[in-house]
């Protein structure tokens, strides 16, 4: 495993070890993504444990969001193998739910909250099946779980940033998946929304589902997550929070960009 051709065909390299990862919700080997000349993510390995809540952290431009997008096939990967519950991505789409960054869509789009949540049922509905009362009820239930049921008929542009984020989470819930991938779910939301989102995520974990979130607030990593994946183009550290979320690793991922007093506040384990 130590020698890997970074730009080679990932399948050949990873063919052997994939079998032993078969039960993991998400296994990534040798993932490289490049926009232009400079790799945004380089030869990244990542293994997500079943039933875990993992934070992907790292400085700006470290390739956190890119990693998620490459895993999902939204941006093309230069190399690397991705398996979801031991199967190739294309065969396990229905087990994945995704919450993109809020800023990635135009909120003036002519659509209502309930319609956005129903988009989570797109795979199930296919091209022609009509949206029936059952589908609608499920969408309402998902809105209920994020406290947004009363907003079902609003145009999405009328919502606050936090409410928009909760609608995105409701849409992911409607997907009824086992693995939840979230891109900065807590970015720019109010305290009430942050609480509502973390409650939902912890419920998902309690139900035995797996959560992976790109996260930027180091001060909440300990409270919200049990695993951490620290990257800065390359992988820096990976593992349970107690082992991987250390001062040494943070220094190495963020360079000198972290203030000393922040380190004290984080009450890091390890060193």
């Amino acid at each position: 495993m130590s020698l890997r051709m970074p730009f080679g065909r990932g399948e050949e390299v990873a063919a052997a070890p994939l079998a032993e990862l078969s039960d993991k919700p998400l296994a990534v080997r040798g993932l490289t993504v490049s926009y232009g000349q400079k790799p945004a993510v380089f030869s990244l390995d990542m293994t997500i444990e079943d039933g875990s809540m993992t934070a992907i952290i790292g400085p700006n431009g470290a390739g956190k969001s890119t990693t998620l997008k490459a895993v999902l096939g939204i941006v093309p990967r230069l190399s690397g193998v991705v398996t979801v519950y031991g199967r190739p991505l294309a065969k396990s789409r229905r087990r994945i739910a995704y919450v993109p960054q809020r800023a990635s869509v135009d909120w003036d789009f002519p659509t209502r909250v309930i319609d956005v949540v129903l988009m989570g049922l797109a795979r199930e509905l296919g091209l022609l099946r009509r949206v029936n009362a059952g589908h609608r009820q499920r969408a309402f239930d998902c809105l209920d779980r994020v406290g947004m049921r009363d907003f079902a008929d609003r145009q999405i542009g009328q919502l606050s940033g936090g409410q928009q984020q909760r609608v995105f989470l409701a849409r992911a819930l409607a997907q009824g998946a086992d693995l939840y991938l979230l891109d900065e779910p807590f970015a720019g939301v109010d305290a009430a929304t942050e609480r509502a989102i973390i409650d939902v995520l912890k419920t998902l974990k309690a139900e035995g589902r797996t959560v992976v979130a790109v996260h930027h607030d180091l001060s909440t990593v300990r409270d919200y997550f049990d695993h951490v994946m620290m990257i800065n183009v390359h992988k820096v550290a990976e593992g349970p929070v107690a082992e991987a979320f250390t001062e040494e690793h943070l220094q190495s991922a963020y360079g000198g960009r972290l203030a000393a007093n922040l380190m004290d506040q984080l009450q890091l384990g390890g060193h």
Binding site: L72, G73, I74, R94, V105, M119
Partner: peptide, 22 residues
């Protein structure tokens, strides 16, 4: 009329559409 659903989804949120396998 037949393609309205995937086309709406892609127009609103292409990333999510791709992640759902469209």
């Amino acid at each position: 009329w037949t393609l309205r659903r995937p086309m709406t989804l892609v127009a609103f949120d292409a990333g999510f559409a791709a992640a759902s396998g469209i």
